[in-house]
């Protein structure tokens, strides 16, 4: 379980509590400025909250060593940058950093584990054909898969990603969600900040709705993103149409 226990952070989060179970896709939704990214950063252990605590299986994340935390939680920032034009393979290899020793031990300790984890990540994101290609020569969709493969290479129990579907066209959004679903089925926890409510409705198992730093709803998408919540939080008068699993939002 990844738990937020009464987290308060400046004027961005106000006493947010939530328990997130592994093996499912959890979406964090909310209007701009609701505190979604801040909550994700706190859950990833990157920001210490002013009050409350983020806990991983009852251990406060702040008590974990940076390395133990990095091994347990993989995090993909909202605007991922890669400073140098490395190949896909090298990028994915960076995801293994938390498993390696110093510069002398780099090629030796856990070399086999490293290689296996990198292969698994490349397979999972269907990147084998692109492994030697530099990032500058990837399309947007390929790039986002490579960045996600970097996270997977660390073999984290938890994958926390801040809007991984933004900037992707519909086909690539669905492809990435399908790949993330496989990770959730493999008992990992997948937590995604999502803007597209229809994608959250159809693909998440659990939705946490934030508004002005407060938790408004947490539960199955059909209830957490009910038409009442949409009206109350987003201020839009909208109606879900279609069958569960292929819902679309009709604005009135």
């Amino acid at each position: 379980m990844l738990c937020a226990d009464n987290i308060t952070l400046g004027d961005r989060l106000d006493g947010v509590s939530a328990g997130i179970a592994p093996g499912r896709i959890t979406a964090i939704c909310g209007p701009n400025g609701a505190g979604k990214s801040s909550l994700l950063s706190v859950l990833a252990g990157l920001i210490a909250p002013d009050a409350g605590a983020a806990e991983l299986d009852t251990t406060p994340i702040a008590d974990l060593s940076p390395r133990a935390r990095a091994r347990a939680i993989g995090y993909l920032p909202q605007t991922p940058e890669v400073a140098w034009d490395v190949t896909v393979e090298t990028l994915v290899d960076l995801g293994r950093l938390a498993w390696r020793g110093g510069p002398l031990a780099k090629r030796r300790s856990g070399g086999a584990d490293d290689a296996a984890a990198i292969e698994t990540a490349l397979d999972a994101m269907e990147l084998q054909d692109l492994r030697t290609r530099p990032l500058s020569r990837l399309s947007g969709g390929e790039r986002s898969r490579a960045l996600m493969a970097r996270v997977l290479a660390g073999a984290p129990q938890w994958i926390l990603a801040d809007e991984p579907l933004a900037n992707l066209d519909l086909a690539h959004q669905l492809a990435l969600l399908r790949l993330l679903r496989r990770e959730a089925d493999a008992a990992r926890g997948v937590v995604l900040v999502m803007h597209d409510l229809a994608l959250a409705m159809n693909h998440a198992d659990e939705v946490l709705v934030l508004d002005e730093g407060r938790r408004v709803a947490l539960g199955e998408p059909e209830t957490a993103l009910s038409e009442n919540v949409l009206r109350e939080v987003w201020g839009v008068d909208a109606r879900w149409v279609g069958e569960p699993g292929s819902r679309a939002l009709a604005l009135r």
Binding site: L46, P66, E81, A83, L97, G102
Partner: peptide, 23 residues
């Protein structure tokens, strides 16, 4: 040379580097 690992992590930006255990 000892700083190399932290510098590698920084390739991905400060936030991602810290998530990889860079101090």
């Amino acid at each position: 040379l000892l700083a190399g690992r932290g510098l590698d992590a920084l390739t991905l930006g400060e936030e991602a580097a810290r998530s990889l255990g860079m101090e």
